[in-house]
Computed example of a mutant assay.
Amino acid sequence: MITLVRRAVAVCALGAALASCATSRPAQQPPRPAPSLSPAVPSSPPTLAPGPSGLTPVFRNGPRTAGRTVALTFDADMTADQGPRARSGERFDHPRLIAALRELGVPATVFMTGRWAEEYPDQARSIGRDPLFEVANHSYSHYAFTGDCYGLPTVSADLMRADVERAYAAFRRVGVPEAMPYFRFPGGCYDRRALRALAPAGVTAVQWDVVGGDAFATDAAAVARQVVDGVRPGSVVVLHCTRSAAPTTERAVRTIVPELRSRGYRFVKVSELIAAGHGRG
């Protein structure tokens, strides 16, 4: 028996069969270095799958049952032929609105025309590089993609995709790093021909389910009331980021945001709504 014990102690001393050595304590292991983490690979922005026959998909609102989220979207409109009006002093930007969104901490999606980005490159770059916002495509020229769309000039079907790609090129030139693969039709006007023409561009068309009514409005309280009364969980609200055409928007937003927050709503960007579900209205 003594011989067996001596053998067991010798085995423990050599560090082998520790589990069978009841009288010895396991050797303390040095701490392991933390595993190095590889840089996170950025994921692609969420989009919808192509619609029937491969048409451009259309997104109108997020899911109604995934919590009280709402996306404020702002169209930065400027048509290709409005340069002379801008040079004469008309303002198609709205820096006080963007400042208000930053002050209130409200994420938002700005649907920008390429012509707007060229006219206001510093603002476009500032918005595009601010993580609070995301920049999406509102065409280059803000010409309509259908006939009879609020009196806008029209883009022929063979030039529709080129107009969208020209806007993305304008964003890159002014320093917007990653414009989203989302497109809003000027005036919200589209048909099957337009959806077919844009399919190769790989964008998701983004509409809305709440009209802010701020275009050419003079009563900020009325705009705010229309938005607040119309919002439901998952809503996409369309407003504007142009001083000359929507002068009351900043004041309306300062009412809309606290009121919706008091009702339990959380503001998100369009990309978060798309990621949450494929609502198409």
Score class of each variant (00 low, 15 high):
Met1Val: 05
Ile2Asp: 11
Val5Ile: 09
Arg7Glu: 08
Ala8Cys: 06
Ala8Lys: 10
Ala8Glu: 13
Val11Met: 15
Leu14Thr: 11
Ala22Thr: 04
Ser24Thr: 13
Ala27Thr: 15
Ala34Thr: 15
Leu37Cys: 15
Pro39Gln: 11
Ser43Gln: 13
Ser43Thr: 12
Ser44Phe: 07
Thr47Cys: 11
Leu48Pro: 12
Pro50Ala: 08
Gly51Val: 13
Leu55Asp: 08
Leu55Ala: 01
Phe59His: 06
Asn61Cys: 07
Arg64Pro: 01
Arg64Ser: 07
Thr65Gln: 13
Ala66Val: 12
Gly67Ile: 10
Thr69Gly: 09
Thr69Met: 06
Val70Phe: 08
Ala71Gly: 11
Ala71Tyr: 12
Leu72Met: 00
Ala80His: 14
Gln82Ser: 13
Arg85Val: 02
Glu90Trp: 00
Pro95Leu: 10
Pro95Gly: 06
Pro95Arg: 02
Arg96Cys: 07
Ile98Ala: 10
Ile98Thr: 14
Ala100Asp: 12
Glu103Arg: 14
Gly105Ile: 03
Val106His: 07
Pro107Ser: 04
Thr109Ser: 14
Val110Ser: 15
Thr113Gln: 09
Ala117Val: 00
Ile127Pro: 00
Pro131Thr: 08
Val135Ala: 02
Ala136Leu: 09
His138Val: 00
Tyr140Ile: 02
His142Phe: 04
Tyr143Asn: 00
Ala144Phe: 05
Thr146Arg: 10
Thr146Lys: 14
Gly147Cys: 03
Asp148Tyr: 08
Asp148Asn: 04
Gly151Asp: 10
Pro153Phe: 11
Val155Tyr: 00
Ser156Tyr: 04
Ser156Asn: 12
Ala157Lys: 00
Asp158Ser: 11
Leu159Ala: 01
Ala162Val: 00
Ala167Gly: 15
Phe171His: 08
Val176Trp: 09
Pro177Phe: 00
Ala179Arg: 06
Ala179Gln: 06
Phe185Cys: 02
Pro186Leu: 06
Gly188Asp: 05
Cys189Ile: 13
Cys189Ala: 11
Tyr190Leu: 03
Tyr190Trp: 01
Arg193Lys: 12
Ala194Trp: 07
Ala197Tyr: 02
Ala197Met: 01
Ala199Trp: 12
Ala199Ser: 07
Pro200Trp: 06
Gly202His: 01
Gly202Thr: 00
Gln207Gly: 14
Gln207Val: 09
Val210Gln: 08
Val211Ala: 15
Gly212Lys: 06
Gly213Arg: 01
Phe216Lys: 03
Ala217Cys: 03
Ala217Thr: 07
Ala221Glu: 02
Ala222Pro: 14
Ala224His: 12
Ala224Gln: 13
Gly230Pro: 09
Arg232Trp: 07
Gly234Ala: 11
Gly234Glu: 04
Val236Gly: 15
Val237Ile: 15
Val237Thr: 13
Val237Arg: 05
Cys241Phe: 13
Arg243Ile: 03
Pro247Tyr: 12
Pro247Met: 12
Thr249Ile: 05
Ala252Met: 05
Val253Cys: 09
Val257Lys: 13
Glu259Trp: 01
Val268Phe: 03
Ser271Phe: 10
Gly277Asn: 04
His278Glu: 04
